[in-house]
Amino acid sequence: MRYGNENRVAVFFEKSDDLIARIKKIDGARWSQTLKVWHLPDTEEHRVRFKIAPQLSNLPSTEGIENIEKFKQWMRSKRYSDRTVTTYSEALKYFLVFYREKPLTGITNEDVIMYNNEYILKNKLSASYQNQIVNAIKLFFQTIRDTKILVDKIHRPKRGKVLPNVLSKEEIKLILNAHSNLKHSMMLSLIYSCGLRCGELLALEPVHIDSKRNIVLLKNAKGKKDRIAPLSPKILEMLRNYYAVFKPEKYLFEGQIKGQPYDARSLQLLLKQALQKAGIAKPVTLHWLRHSYATHLLESVTDL
């Protein structure tokens, strides 16, 4: 699979705290929230370890490669995010590899069903991943003329009803108090107290903090939509102390280079360190803090 600008090895397995803990110990292992899959650096060691066959011949036909490139250009012209362009084009590539001997104009809805059965289900890939591929196929064939595909009749997998991962208030307190560094504590506290996504936090600028209205302005959040989040007086006071000490230039949370946003991987590492200090063994991700925020509001009978 392609993730960002590098090749990665996707690893699929049944959800298990033990397996998650084991894969997290592998150097370079990362979780993709978009694809709902763990992935590792594409090295010979990992290919042998997970019994992955060489993929030199696993390319679509020349027609497929040309159309994938056109599809990328179309998505970029429609202002899809770089991550969506990468995710959809990679998903489409696997589909077109499966039908590399068949012209695009000859692919039908029955072929999509066969792909789901002979590739997705046979390889025990997740419903989330199947849904991602269906999205890519539907969007691609909407842009292709002279096709036998009836886009509206492409069915997607039934979504399972999965409860979000939630931490207790006591566990949240331990995590937020784990770091003595003001910046580290501030970032984790803001994610939880405002229910932010990782990307939303790292894109924040000082001007997005509206202290008079006690809100945070989130520009170009998921789906390129702006939204606001409430800001508690306690967090606002912490932010004032943080700003006085660090004096950020462009982004509210900057890395070692002034004017550059804090690195997402470093933020994930901060959480991992906080969990170790707090003695919490659960495979917590930054998104767990967001889920916990929403759940704790509901438990407190907050007016939606």
Rank of each mutant, 00 (worst) to 15 (best):
R2W: 11
G4P: 08
E6V: 13
V9N: 03
E14Y: 14
R22Q: 02
I23H: 07
I26A: 10
D27A: 15
Q33W: 05
K36T: 08
V37S: 11
W38L: 11
H39K: 07
L40V: 09
P41F: 00
P41M: 03
P41L: 04
D42S: 11
E45V: 03
E45I: 14
H46M: 12
V48D: 11
I52Q: 10
Q55M: 09
S61W: 00
T62C: 15
E63V: 00
I65C: 08
E66P: 13
K70E: 08
W74C: 12
W74D: 12
R79D: 07
Y80S: 02
Y80M: 00
T87S: 07
L92A: 01
L92T: 01
K93L: 00
K93A: 01
F95G: 08
F95R: 08
F95P: 08
L96G: 01
Y99L: 07
E101L: 12
T105P: 12
N109Y: 13
D111P: 04
I113F: 13
N116R: 15
Y119S: 02
K122Y: 08
L125M: 14
N131G: 13
I133G: 11
V134N: 12
V134M: 15
V134R: 15
I137D: 05
K138V: 09
F141E: 06
T147Y: 02
D152T: 09
K153M: 09
K153C: 11
H155K: 12
K158V: 03
V162T: 13
N165R: 13
L167E: 00
L167F: 05
L167K: 01
K169E: 11
E171M: 10
N177E: 01
A178R: 04
H179P: 03
H179G: 06
L182M: 12
M187E: 01
Y192G: 07
R197K: 06
R197L: 08
E200F: 00
L201T: 00
E205H: 05
P206F: 05
H208D: 14
I209R: 06
S211M: 15
K212N: 12
R213W: 02
V216Q: 01
L217Y: 06
K222A: 04
K224V: 14
I235R: 10
L236M: 12
Y242D: 02
Y242K: 08
Y242V: 03
Y242C: 06
Y243S: 11
A244K: 06
V245S: 04
F246W: 15
P248Y: 01
L252Y: 04
P261L: 08
D263A: 12
R265E: 13
R265Y: 10
L267N: 03
Q268I: 06
Q268H: 06
K272D: 10
L275M: 13
I280H: 11
H287L: 01
R290E: 03
S292P: 07
Y293S: 09
A294L: 14
L298M: 10
S300T: 09
T302Y: 12
L304H: 07
